[in-house]
Every structure is written in structure tokens, then in C-alpha cells.
Design a protein around this nucleic acid. Structure first.
Length: 463
RNA sequence: GCCGGGGUGGCCGAGCGGCCUAAGGCGACGGGCUUGAGACCCGUUGUCCCCCCUGGGGACGCGCGGGUUCGAAUCCCGCCCCCGGCGCCA
């Protein structure tokens, strides 16, 4: 019998489950509630099973009854049981849907390795690259490195790089968020020419990199049904992030993770075919309802962007190792892109409900004087698999368990573009194109090759 | 979107109101036989609940959800998906 780790812990050691939930800074009282409902659920089920059994016995005897009178008597007896069952089943259905709802509202467990606390407890565990630090940001740069005991080499610059938002609209003239705002709303954008080429070059680079490592390339559905979406994310994320198609049971994906996870919805995988490593490409649609006015300028936080995503279905015993693998893949790509980053181990209070552990990769943004999130890599263990009903069968003994799922950004296009606009910016506004991207631009006549040249807004593109 | 056909266990495929709750085959797993493998023989093969829990009992399960009946894979209604034809379309 396959068991979901959270349900197993609820039944075996509810106090321990409470500690996990408390680590997420959530109210552990839900544990008592769901435990009581689960007990009631089991009790009712036992009672109903017994009544149904008696009913089945009678029902079977009707066909074999010797006389018409006997049949009539048995029918009445069966009806009497049905009346009792009706009452019990009504209770059960109530309890059952309550139980389902409560179980689905439980977050995943928290890995022992995760720092406990709110987001301020998240800890950088590794720095890479030589960030360019403007003199005015030196203090805050030190604050973001030395405070955690890291001595990070940097290049001090005396000119302040232009922020990505002004770069794209004013210096390069290759983006228009004002017009997009007028016709679609804030957090939408038009990108033009070289930045569009750059977007596609980034995607191709990530696809090339990961398929070379054996990941299977997938172009997934961009919309999913409610039941499937609810299997992948928690309700809070649903409200804050997900767009619904009017009049249809369809929701726009916020990341390819959602439809990649759903690839084996209601299926069983044999242990000898795992791990299954996928690389998906898709647009991502996000409401950003909880974001308020954060990052309103530019294209850092937008309703729509392209992303290449890593996704793995794994054996339970392999998921920790594979979690390291996907964050390492991301690191490798950002190293090759030459973007200085740090890896942050996310604190328990800031974990999403699906994950037991999460790493973010944050790139140094010279114009903001901050490290900003580019990549997020999560180990979801059996949380999504339980909800999507994806099991693993161990050949040895044909034992069924839930598979583990893992996901990580490879490259999110618009965010990575913001990082390139700030990190590869020359004092005159020229943006150097990272070397690894150039081969993906080479075949196209009108694509930029080595540089993106400044040309004020309204100026004709290219020379 | 319209008309017609169809969705049965991991897979193929019978069954079309009760001969007790899915025949038969394949696969997989366990065991027997064997020096080993194959062939062969026996058993097992979904979900859930209960118990005196190396085992035993029961409920549910035939695309999904309802309904009719003492009894539904079998009859009725709604939805989803697949195949064929027509229409529309990048």
C-alpha cells in the first residue's frame, strides 16, 4: 500500500507533524483538526462496510429465494438496510470531502537541513563570480556577503550602471512597457529586435545544455484543468498566481513545472525507469496578485515570460541527490553566462507548500546593489505525486510508493535579460552579449552578434 | 461545432440486469523444478477499511459524476477523452 509521507506521519506521530508545520510559521492546530476528521472518516467507513456487507448477502439470496413471498420479505429487509445506509453515507460524504479538503491544505514536511525561521533566516551558502560593485553600493554589498562569513572578490566601479528598466526603454529603446500597460496592463511589455533575439538565444542555450545532459525535451500544454493544477500547487498559489480561462475548466500554467508534473497524472512508473529527467519550454503566466507595487518598473516581475524548466521524477531515495544535480545545472549555466551569483538555502517560513527544501540562485544586479532571484530549485518529495496520484512500483516485490518530484528553473528569459542588461553594461550604454549565447545568434542575419548598441528611444533600430 | 462508432484490470480482450463481484490470454512479481537460463507447474497481480496482523475478513472498483433497481460493467442523464465523416481554421 502506497502511503503519503504526510498522512503517515499524521497517523503515527501527529506531534511531530505539528513541529514541521510550526517550522513553516503556520498554525499547527490544523493537525488536530485533520486527525480527528481522519479518525471519524475511518470509523464511518468501517460501519458502512459492515452494513453494505449485510445488504450484499441479502441481495444475493433474492435470486435464489424459493418463493415469491420469501423474495418480497428479503426485498423489504434490503430496503430497510438501504435507509440506514443513506443516513450514514450522507454523513460519510460530508466527512470525506472535509477530510480531502484538509489533507490538501497540508503543506509538505520540512527537510532537517532547512534553516528555521522567516525569510531573514534564509542563508547564502555559496558565492560565485566577481561582481561589479558601484562605490555607492559598497556598504550594502558587504552587508550581503560578509555578514554571512563570505569574502567575495569584487570589481569596484566609479560609474553607476543604469537600471535594466531604463536600459531597455531609454538607452537601448528596445522595450515599451507604457504602451503594453495601455493595451494590456501593468507588468506587460513589448520587447523589440535585439532583446527578442536575446530571449530566444537564452532559451536555446538552456535547451541545448540540458538536452546534452540527457534531459528529454518537452513542449507541454500551456493550460491545465483545475484538478490537475490543484495537484501541483497549493490554494494560496492558485489565488495569487493563476489565470483562469473564462467559461472553461482551464487555467494558464505559471510554469512548465505544472504541466510536466502532470505528464504522468494517475499513472504508475516502474522503479527501473526512474529517474525521468525532463526539460520543458513554455511561456509562463502569473497574476502576481500578492506582489503589490514591487518591481513595477521594467521586466523583472511580469505577467508573462518564457522559461526553460528542469523537472525530475525520481525514486524516493534519490531525490536529495537529484536536488543537488538540478541546482548544479543552474549554477553551471549562470557561470557560463558569466553572471555573478549566490546560492541561498531558503528558510522554512519562506518555502512553498509543495517543497521540503528549496535553493534559490540570485544574481548580483549592479544597478540595484542587490542579489536578485533568477532560479528556484525545489524538492517536492511525494507532495505533488500524492495529489496527482503518480506512483512508483518497485520490481522487487511489486511494492507501490509515491514517486518524488523535483523542479528547477533553467533559464527564465526576461529575468535573465535584466541581469545581462545590468552586468554586461559598458559605461557608454553598450551591452556585451555573453559569449555562450553568440552561437545561437550566429545563423540569423538580423540578430545582434557581439554587442547591443545604445540607440535612444524612437531611433531606428540597427545601423 | 454537427453526425456516427467507441472507452473494461499494467496490456490485449470477453461479458451487455442477478448463475455469487470481470472469462481467457499476455506481461510483471513470488515460489517449485534446474548447475544456471529457458520451457513447464503453482500462486500473486487496483483502492480503501477492520482485526486476535509473517495472517485473516470486508467494502469499493469496468473513462468521470449522478440516477433507476433488493441487485448495474450491463438500463437512463450530464461531462471528458479516443476513432471515422462533414464543417471551420494557423
Amino acid at each position: 500500500m502506497a502511503t503519503w509521507s504526510v498522512l503517515a506521519l499524521l497517523r503515527e506521530n501527529p506531534e511531530e507533524l505539528k513541529r514541521h508545520i510550526a517550522k513553516r510559521l503556520m498554525d499547527p492546530a490544523i493537525v488536530d483538526e485533520v486527525l480527528a476528521v481522519d479518525i471519524e472518516w475511518r470509523r464511518l467507513q468501517t460501519e458502512i462496510n459492515e452494513l453494505r456487507h449485510r445488504h450484499n448477502v441479502i441481495t444475493r439470496s433474492i435470486a435464489r429465494a424459493s418463493s415469491e413471498e420469501e423474495r418480497a420479505r428479503l426485498r423489504e429487509e434490503a430496503r430497510e438496510l438501504l435507509r440506514k445506509l443513506e443516513v450514514l453515507e450522507a454523513r460519510f460524504n460530508e466527512v470525506d470531502s472535509r477530510r480531502t479538503q484538509l489533507l490538501l491544505s497540508l503543506p509538505n514536511l520540512v527537510d532537517d537541513d532547512v534553516p528555521v525561521g522567516d525569510e531573514s533566516a534564509s542563508v547564502p551558502i555559496e558565492f560565485w563570480g566577481k561582481p561589479r560593485v558601484w562605490v555607492g553600493y559598497l556598504d550594502q554589498f558587504r552587508e550581503q556577503t560578509e555578514r554571512y562569513g563570505f569574502k567575495v572578490e569584487y570589481e569596484l566601479i566609479d560609474w553607476k550602471p543604469v537600471g535594466h528598466a531604463d536600459m531597455l526603454e531609454e538607452i537601448l529603446g528596445l522595450g515599451d512597457t507604457r504602451k503594453a500597460g495601455e493595451v494590456a496592463g501593468s507588468r506587460f511589455y513589448y520587447l523589440f529586435e535585439d532583446l527578442v533575439w536575446l530571449d530566444f538565444a537564452l532559451l536555446l542555450y538552456a535547451i541545448d545544455k540540458l538536452t546534452a545532459k540527457g534531459y528529454k525535451l518537452v513542449l507541454p500544454p500551456y493550460m491545465l484543468r483545475y484538478n490537475v493544477m490543484a495537484g501541483v500547487i497549493d490554494l494560496a498559489a492558485f489565488k495569487d498566481a493563476i489565470y483562469k480561462i473564462e467559461g472553461e475548466d482551464l487555467y494558464l500554467i505559471a510554469t512548465a513545472e505544472h504541466s510536466l508534473a502532470a505528464l504522468y497524472y494517475n499513472e504508475e512508473l516502474y522503479d527501473d525507469e526512474l529517474p525521468i529527467k525532463l526539460v520543458g519550454v513554455s511561456p509562463c503566466f502569473r497574476k502576481e496578485a500578492g506582489a503589490g507595487s514591487r518591481d513595477l518598473k521594467g521586466i523583472f516581475r511580469v505577467h508573462q515570460f518564457h522559461k526553460v524548466e528542469q523537472f525530475i521524477f525520481s525514486k524516493p531515495e534519490d531525490s536529495r541527490r537529484l536536488h543537488e544535480e538540478i541546482i548544479n545545472n543552474a549554477k553551471e549555466m549562470f557561470q557560463e553566462l558569466g553572471l555573478p551569483y549566490r546560492v541561498v538555502k531558503i528558510a522554512s517560513g519562506d518555502l512553498g507548500a509543495p517543497a521540503v527544501k528549496k535553493y534559490d540562485l540570485e544574481v548580483w544586479m549592479p544597478a540595484q546593489g542587490k542579489y536578485r532571484e533568477m532560479v528556484s530549485a525545489s524538492n517536492c518529495t511525494d507532495w505533488q505525486a500524492y495529489r496527482l496520484n503518480i506512483k512508483m512500483i518497485r520490481r522487487k516485490g511489486m511494492i507501490r510508493e509515491y514517486v518524488h518530484t523535483l523542479n528547477s528553473t533553467a533559464i527564465a528569459s526576461t529575468r535573465t535579460i535584466t541581469a545581462i542588461l545590468e552586468n554586461y553594461q559598458e559605461p557608454d550604454g553598450t551591452v556585451i552579449i555573453p559569449k555562450v549565447l553568440r552561437k545561437y545568434l550566429e545563423p540569423f542575419e538580423r540578430a545582434p552578434k557581439d554587442y547591443i548598441k545604445p540607440r535612444r528611444k524612437g531611433e531606428e533600430a540597427r545601423t
